[in-house]
Design a protein around this nucleic acid. Structure first.
Lengths: 163, 163
DNA sequence: GAGTCGTGATTGACACGTCAACTATGCCAC
DNA sequence: GTGGCATAGTTGACGTGTCAATCACGACTC
């Protein structure tokens, strides 16, 4: 048995398309608004949020990466761009000379503080206000179910490592 | 009235985060699988799908753009990359010499045919199988509600053009 | 048929992401 | 203290996406 799984029906496929296209559109609109209102990208916002919650507004680079769930190289590239804009600064780490510490700069702190209210408002307007309380709850359950499912090793590869 | 909208509650915000992060993860896993199984990106797949459904496997460039909902410049860049890989070809358009026609190439047709079953299977495994039928229906309703809401002009800018 | 305007498509600059090297330390064994 | 290995972080190449500018042509007017 196994091997040829049943393919999605027409209805399932159209639900999938609507779902994935809508969430992409939602993300794009959020990004555009954040950019327009505050000049920050979602990446900038994530970095600044994590940084401003850290004691002393400074975090080891690899810890920052795991806080926001990024690969280190992605973070490194992004920090380079943020450093050019004076949002953050990188310092050598005292305890481990391989390491780097990321430090929030005044420019970055200001940008983040100015961004948080508009961003939260946008989330409310574009997402929360679009749904009934029941739908919002259902969205949470769907996300949880997907998250669980995607973390199952088998969902990565069904019948793919059968060598 | 108006101006200071209520900010999201802690619960709403955590639902939001779970939702948006999960859909992003889902998209990433789908992309990785498509890439791994077939060597195509989601963009490639969308272009090839539209092209292979078109009469004669050829479409005017701007029509292709509207079929898959892309900006023309995005499409132009992508077609350039696909042309380098011999997946498609661009021809001058007979009826309108400004225009270009995109033509499916054998390499592209083969790649697309080889990709469709694995891709549909991945959608089933990663998305549909993760949800109960009720959750799947709810996902469709949520997408529809969001789509409607996001198309409302006011949801783009509440109190933003109040000059 | 010259002027103007809209449309079809491409281009260049740049932000963002991934992957695969690569550098530089730390760390442990011996 | 040297060899081997893991860890921290950076870098380069390249695919992808947006924006603004540009080019070329069609269409319409006079």
């Amino acid at each position: 048995m196994a091997g040829a799984r049943k393919l999605p029906t027409r209805d399932e496929l159209s639900t999938w398309r609507e779902f994935i296209e809508t969430t992409e559109r939602l993300r794009n609109m959020l990004t555009a608004r954040l950019q327009h209102d505050t000049g920050l990208s979602p990446g900038d916002y994530a970095v600044l949020l994590a940084l401003s919650e850290a004691p002393g507004s400074r975090v080891r680079s690899s810890e920052l990466a795991s806080l926001i769930g990024w690969e280190r190289s992605r973070l490194s590239h992004h920090l380079g761009r943020m450093e050019r804009r004076r949002l953050i600064r990188r310092e050598e780490c005292a305890s481990d000379s391989r390491g780097a510490e990321v430090v929030l700069q005044p420019t970055g702190a200001d940008a983040f503080h100015a961004a948080t209210a508009p961003h939260l408002r946008a989330i409310r307007e574009l997402f929360i206000d679009a749904l009934t309380p029941e739908q919002l709850a259902a969205a949470g359950e769907i996300a949880a179910a997907l998250q669980t499912h995607l973390s199952r090793p088998a969902s990565n590869a069904t019948e793919r490592s059968r060598t």
